[in-house]
Structure formats: structure tokens, C-alpha cells
């Protein structure tokens, strides 16, 4: 061991170190393999895939599969590509994430700073929402949506995701606010701030980390949801995941694997983007609040 090396508790020789990094590199490559396959196959003509060269780099580079998946591929009966469904998903996910996050923050605020009788029991009941499997609520939810006249609409789907998301968002914010000093709320009360003023001016500005966690979590879950989308949205109103399924599972014609790969990447892109942009805060937020308490 060289003198310059830092003397840590674990003594490792250079050879061991090299071995460790080699292993790590191997694992990293292994986990990146699917992404490689998807990327590579989405930019080569179909003939190269069916010719058995799935692992090989493309001989002819083309973005044709991407364009096709986006705007002209056959989804169900219409050759619309994934484009309209992508916007369906966006216009469903954004309000659903926003509403469930804000409601979760409000719930957390009330459950920690405006304690009332049986509030812990209420919180416990809300936590059930985190554990109930999707399948159990399908039929009651369908009945409720029918009763409200929202069956098969985008707003109906937003409602479903908000209701399902509140459990998690409440859990995050409650645990975050539990360690937020109550004296601040009391000081604001004496200063004359109202219920919502305190929330808006004192608590929310300090909720950055946990809000990021909550948004990433909700965004990923709602964007990736297939079951609710398939059950409660119909035809043109279907979200991206359902459309992708319809693209891949179409039983007629040639299976255009390259288009499927491109479509799958398109479907995964927004969540990937959210992680890359806000991933740093995600870990920080998890450390800051939700694990404690």
C-alpha cells in the first residue's frame, strides 16, 4: 500500500480495488443492456432486426421508426401514431399530480399543525390507500365514476389518480411537517396570519425537497399507470401506456419491432426526464423528511 493512499478502516490493495471496479463496471453494463437494445433497434430498419442482428449496431441508421411511432403508426384502428395519446397523458398527469400534491400538503399541514381528536386514526386510514391493490377498487371506482357522470372522461381519470395519490402525498407531507417547528405556526398565528396564509407563506416555501419527492413519485406512478387507464379511459381518451399496448399488441400486419422500440422509449421519456432533472432533489428530499418520523 502506498503512503499517499488514505488510510481507511477497510484495507484494500490495488489489485482488489481494480477487481471491485471491474465488477461494478460489468454490472453497470449488464443493467444498461436493455436500454442499449431498445436504442439500437429503434434506429435500424426492420429487416436488420428480423435478419437476426438484434444485438448488432445498425448498418443503416434511420429515424424513420421514431417518426412512425410518433405520428403515423396504427393505434387500434386509426393510423395516428402515439402523438395524440402522449398529449392525453400529459393533460391527465399534470392536473392529477398538481392536485394530489397540493391536497397532500394541505392534509399534512392539518394533520400535524391543527391536531384534532382521532387525527392519528384518520391518518392511519389514509395510509391504507398506499397498500390497497389497484384491482380491488376497480369496480367500486367504476360505479362512482358512473354516478358522477365522469365515466370514460379525462377528468374521471384525473379524479381516480388524485384519490389514489392522496394517500402517498399525505404520508410524505405529514412526515415532513411533523418535524417542522410548530412554534413557527404559533408565531404566525400571533402575527395574525390566517389558516391558508400560514400554509402559503410559511410552510409551502420550506417544502421544496418533499414537494419534489412527491411530484416525482406521483408523476412516475400516474404516467406509468396502465390498469386505470385501460379501465376508465376509452378510445381516443386513452393515455400513452394504453396506446403503446395497442401499438405493440396489434394482431394484424407485420410486427414492426423497430417502431415498437421507439414507441416504448417515447413512452418512458417523460419519467426519465423528470428523474434526470429532479433526481438530485429526490434523494435529498427522501433523506430530509419522509424516512423520519
Amino acid at each position: 500500500m502506498s503512503v499517499a493512499m488514505q488510510d481507511t478502516a477497510i484495507r484494500t490493495g490495488r489489485a482488489v480495488r481494480v477487481l471491485i471496479y471491474l465488477f461494478l463496471l460489468l454490472f453497470a453494463l449488464f443493467y444498461l443492456l436493455p436500454l442499449y437494445v431498445m436504442l439500437v433497434n429503434s434506429v435500424k430498419p426492420l429487416s436488420e432486426i428480423t435478419g437476426g442482428g438484434m444485438m448488432a449496431l445498425p448498418e443503416v441508421w434511420t429515424i424513420e421508426p421514431w417518426l412512425k411511432a410518433w405520428s403515423t403508426a396504427q393505434i387500434g384502428v386509426e393510423p395516428t401514431g402515439l402523438k395524440p395519446y402522449f398529449w392525453n397523458s400529459i393533460s391527465m398527469v399534470v392536473p392529477a399530480v398538481a392536485i394530489s400534491t397540493i391536497l397532500g400538503a394541505l392534509n399534512g399541514y392539518v394533520l400535524t399543525k391543527w391536531r384534532f381528536r382521532y387525527d392519528t386514526i384518520l391518518f392511519g386510514l389514509m395510509l391504507f390507500a398506499c397498500f390497497i391493490p389497484f384491482q380491488i377498487v376497480l369496480i367500486p371506482m367504476a360505479a362512482v365514476l358512473g354516478f358522477l357522470g365522469l365515466a370514460g372522461t379525462a377528468s374521471g381519470l384525473v379524479l381516480v389518480h388524485v384519490v389514489y395519490g392522496i394517500g402517498f402525498s399525505t404520508l410524505y407531507f405529514r412526515n415532513y411537517y411533523a418535524v417542522f417547528p410548530t412554534e413557527l405556526v404559533r408565531a404566525a398565528q400571533i402575527d395574525g396570519a390566517s389558516f391558508f396564509k400560514i400554509f402559503w407563506r410559511i410552510l409551502l416555501p420550506s417544502s421544496g425537497p418533499i414537494a419534489v419527492v412527491c411530484i416525482i413519485w406521483q408523476f412516475t406512478n400516474i404516467w406509468n399507470d396502465f390498469l386505470f387507464g385501460a379501465s376508465f379511459a376509452s378510445g381516443d381518451g386513452a393515455p400513452m401506456t394504453v396506446a403503446l399496448n395497442n401499438l405493440v399488441q396489434s394482431s394484424t400486419g407485420v410486427k414492426e419491432y423497430n417502431v415498437h422500440f421507439a414507441g416504448a422509449i417515447l413512452a418512458a421519456l417523460p419519467t426519465l426526464l423528470v428523474y434526470i432533472v429532479a433526481g438530485r432533489y429526490f434523494v435529498r428530499g427522501l433523506m430530509a423528511g419522509s424516512v423520519k418520523g
Binding site: P181, E183, L184, A188, Q189, I190, I202, S206
Partner: peptide, 20 residues
């Protein structure tokens, strides 16, 4: 009577300064 209408002011043990 609501705290803000009592014309009182309070200094807290933790100071309770709004961090933002």
C-alpha cells in the same frame, strides 16, 4: 379571542423566525 386580536407579542424559545 384569537391570538392576533389580543394585541400581544411573543418571543419563543426557538425564536421561531420564518426561515424563508
Amino acid at each position: 379571542v384569537h391570538p392576533s386580536k389580543r394585541n400581544i407579542a411573543m418571543v419563543f424559545q426557538s425564536y421561531a423566525l420564518y426561515p424563508n
